[in-house]
Design a protein around this nucleic acid. Structure first.
Lengths: 214, 214
DNA sequence: TATTAATTAGACCGACCGTCTAATAATTGA
DNA sequence: TCAATTATTAGACGGTCGGTCTAATTAATA
């Protein structure tokens, strides 16, 4: 029988208890991710997150130094979560490289649809807000993009080797182009509450990298 | 001799005075535009704007019902300001249609450079924040994009007629694609504090619409 | 069993945000 | 001409937010 997780009580927790506690820290991060993908950093209050997970402020400041430290962890967590997602789709050797890209895109689109186009990309959200954010976030956000782009460039290399895209393509540059445009499409999808921008950008991008027929 | 503008005092202003008053309302809008292009709506405080233009709160609420009404006016003002800019460049019959697009892009890039890539696009900023914004903003923002896109589509039509771009291009769709990607590039330019994303997106877009050589 | 460690609980403060009422001065019109 | 009205500034007020701090609670440790 699986023990249903239970709210912690005050005081140091038992070490060898068979009680399954909700991991407060993890809960806070999960709720934080949801909030930041929807509303970004500045307009999300800590109290707001605390309310959702039913945790008092003391716990928050026990686990995190302050809002900035919390934000740093959220960027890290989201960056990795998404990097895993990319790897998952990009290394699916059952299909051709280009189809893997399309599969990832379809999945990402489904993800947005699921949340009624209210949740966007945490990294894009914070990038937009950057001027109002702690300066330390900048490098972190850029690094996340770089990571995603390297993975994407690698996939494009494979696509090139497979003859699926033009041999003239600079794959690193094109990966950068993809993420620039994709973030724009996500932004627009949130605004219009529709997946159309995602589709439109995708078809444009594919047309751009396809080998020119002659 | 030009009278230097002077701060208003409390009480109804004289009607036929030769004193040149600063137009408080206009000042507020100007400062609001600057603030929203930088930080967006949610993280911009009214006090902040008031401080810049040295105006007390009462004046603000005299001219605008509330922050939302102020925001509505800012979107309107920015939309028109930018539409004029587009028309200016797009109707410059001294150059070819495609070159007009490039001239506009160069100008927009210079604009971002001038403010050290801290100011982005007000419409894009608010689009990103949309979930945390008054619902009425949505239609307004979409309409602004539609307006810009119509103008852009028209230019692309001319470019097509001039043989500068492929005859197969769906100009309306491509104009939409342009603004989706452009907003993504602006976002990234702000994050990286560099014009590179703008250049990169531009070259990709041009490659996409150019007639295929054979 | 006294001390220390881990965690929740929530009061409190200063800063700031958006609203609202009061004060001030000029215009209008009976 | 002066009371009512209009235009505008002035700033008090209540609420919220982020961050700190102290207390309470329970378990581990020595």
């Amino acid at each position: 029988m699986i023990k249903s997780p239970v709210k912690r009580k005050p005081g140091r927790p038992k070490k060898n208890s068979d009680t399954v506690f909700l991991d407060t820290r993890e809960e806070l991060i999960k709720a934080g991710l949801a909030a930041l993908t929807i509303k970004g950093y500045s307009s999300t209050g800590i109290d707001e997150i605390l309310k959702v997970v039913q945790v008092p402020k003391g716990s928050f400041y026990h686990y995190f130094d302050n809002k900035e430290a919390f934000g740093t962890e959220l960027i890290e967590a989201y960056g990795q979560y998404f990097a895993k997602k990319l790897s998952h789709w990009f290394y699916d050797t059952d299909t051709s490289p280009l189809n893997r890209l399309l599969a990832f895109i379809a999945d990402a689109k489904k993800g947005m649809q699921k949340f009624e186009y209210q949740r966007g990309c945490l990294i894009g959200n914070l990038g937009q807000e950057m001027v109002a954010l702690p300066e330390g976030f900048r490098k972190q956000l850029i690094q996340v993009f770089n990571d995603w782009e390297m993975k994407t460039a690698h996939l494009l290399d494979e696509a090139k080797a497979a003859g699926e895209i033009a041999k003239t393509i600079n794959t690193a540059q094109m990966a950068y182009y993809f993420w620039v445009g994709w973030e724009g499409a996500v932004l627009r999808a949130k605004l219009e509450q529709s997946g159309e921008p995602l589709d439109l950008f995708t078809s444009g991008f594919i047309a751009l990298i396809k080998p020119t027929p002659h």
